[in-house]
C-alpha cells in the first residue's frame, strides 16, 4: 500500500521532487569534494553543487514565482561554472608541471 502511494507520488511531479533531486545532487557534490583526492574529481564535485543550485532556481521559478528570474540566474551560473572550470583546469595543468601529480594530498609544501 505504501509502495503504491509512493508510485502515485512519483507520477505527479511537483516542487518537492525537484528539491529532493537537488538536495541529493548537492550532497553528492559535497561528498565528492570531501573524499576525492584527485583535483579534477574535486572540480567535478563543485560542478555538481552548482548544478544543484541551478535545479533549485528552475524549480522555484516554475512552481512558485512564475517569472523568468530563476532561469536568468541559472544561465549566469552555467557561464560562471564554465569560466571557473577553464581557470581551474589551467591551474591544475600548471600544478602538474610543477609537482608531477594532481593528487591534492601530495601538494602540501605550504604547512605550519
Amino acid at each position: 500500500m505504501v509502495l503504491a502511494d509512493f508510485f502515485q507520488w512519483l507520477q505527479t511531479p511537483g516542487l518537492t521532487h525537484f528539491l529532493l533531486i537537488s538536495g541529493i545532487l548537492f550532497s553528492l557534490g559535497v561528498f565528492a569534494i570531501l573524499t576525492r583526492r584527485n583535483a579534477i574529481m574535486v572540480l567535478m564535485g563543485i560542478e555538481l553543487v552548482l548544478n544543484a543550485a541551478n535545479i533549485n532556481f528552475l524549480a522555484f521559478s516554475r512552481f512558485t514565482t512564475g517569472t523568468l528570474d530563476g532561469h536568468v540566474f541559472a544561465i549566469f551560473v552555467i557561464i560562471l561554472a564554465a569560466a571557473e572550470a577553464a581557470i581551474a583546469l589551467a591551474i591544475i595543468l600548471n600544478i602538474f608541471q610543477n609537482f608531477n601529480s594532481v593528487n591534492i594530498d601530495e601538494i602540501n609544501q605550504l604547512k605550519d
Partner: peptide
C-alpha cells in the same frame, strides 16, 4: 605559488 592558486580556487 601554483599550490597557493590551486588551494585558492578549490
Amino acid at each position: 605559488s601554483s599550490e597557493a592558486s590551486l588551494k585558492y580556487i578549490i
